[in-house]
Design a protein around this nucleic acid. Sequence first.
DNA 1: TGTGTAATGTTATAATATAACATCAAAATA
DNA 2: TATTTTGATGTTATATTATAACATTACACA
Lengths: 162, 162
Amino acid sequence: MQDPFVCTPVSHHHCISSALDKAETLCRSRNVRLTPIRHRVLELIWQQHRPVGAYDLLEQLQQQGRVAPPTVYRALDFLQQQGLIHRLESLNAFVGCAHPQHPHQGQFLICKSCRSLVEITDPEISTVINNRAEAVGFKPLNQTVEVSGFCAGCWQKEQTNG
Amino acid sequence: MQDPFVCTPVSHHHCISSALDKAETLCRSRNVRLTPIRHRVLELIWQQHRPVGAYDLLEQLQQQGRVAPPTVYRALDFLQQQGLIHRLESLNAFVGCAHPQHPHQGQFLICKSCRSLVEITDPEISTVINNRAEAVGFKPLNQTVEVSGFCAGCWQKEQTNG
DNA sequence: TGTGTAATGTTATAATATAACATCAAAATA
DNA sequence: TATTTTGATGTTATATTATAACATTACACA
Ligand SMILES: [Zn+2]
Ligand SMILES: [Zn+2]
Ligand SMILES: [Zn+2]
Ligand SMILES: [Zn+2]
């Protein structure tokens, strides 16, 4: 995974096109259509490389013609179904997934200060949660794990300033 | 904790009044005001004993006179600050907390079928998540852990029916 | 009783999301 | 190729969730 914390403008350009390439390959192999709108929405999401709201995307799309909310939400639904993006429940926002090959639920670290985000995929977290759920007779299907706090850089600033 | 899965009408009546008693004691000891509105909102939340939306609460409050959204949201804010309720990010809903004495972040098991909810408080889950976050240089402050799936009862029905 | 603060009332509006139906484009079939 | 079918998008309206801003009221405390 491309680490957002060290993602420079140059490497980020690469990480956008890499994500889009992966998406195209994946959609072709699954025989689903990554239409221009869907492709564009995914591109806009990766350009930010941080959580983006649906209406932010809408605004950007509207710079090239009239677009209405359902268009954006449909694209987001598709991208989510294909595992190309994740929805962040605590932010009402969306972020690109860097490993869309295997369906999974991400675990997200969200910086309160710079609003950057890192997705981790830790099997131990999933396992512990599932075990505890099953221990009380619950059948777990889907996990939402979102951690808010400070990224390394912002935490350092916090400590020196505060 | 009163287990919602086995919460009968009778025991539930107890669990409402117990929660309200705890809240009163707690607010008195903290020298904050559990005003009639706040008390009423907490009561309505516990009456459902499952996640309730702000506008559901509003509707119920309006049966006794005109109430506007800010009133409900303010009460919810207060109750959240005091740890008397939790907000479920994945549902945009609120649920009563059965252990408001010690501030904590809950871990929630949400049944897709009957929409019942169980809060667990598992230190191991918190610890694993915090460890993994710190391992990538992130300073974790707040965790959102919400698991959707089937409660014991509904899972049994699912398996026999499907 | 006055005086400051916290809580609530009130109105308006912001932000997020979906329903319903019309139109269009692509794929499949004849 | 023409026809049919399906999926995608356009369009309008509206639902749902949440907050801003300012007026008023209740309470605490001097
Ligand atoms: Zn992912
Ligand atoms: Zn940061
Ligand atoms: Zn709790
Ligand atoms: Zn259930």
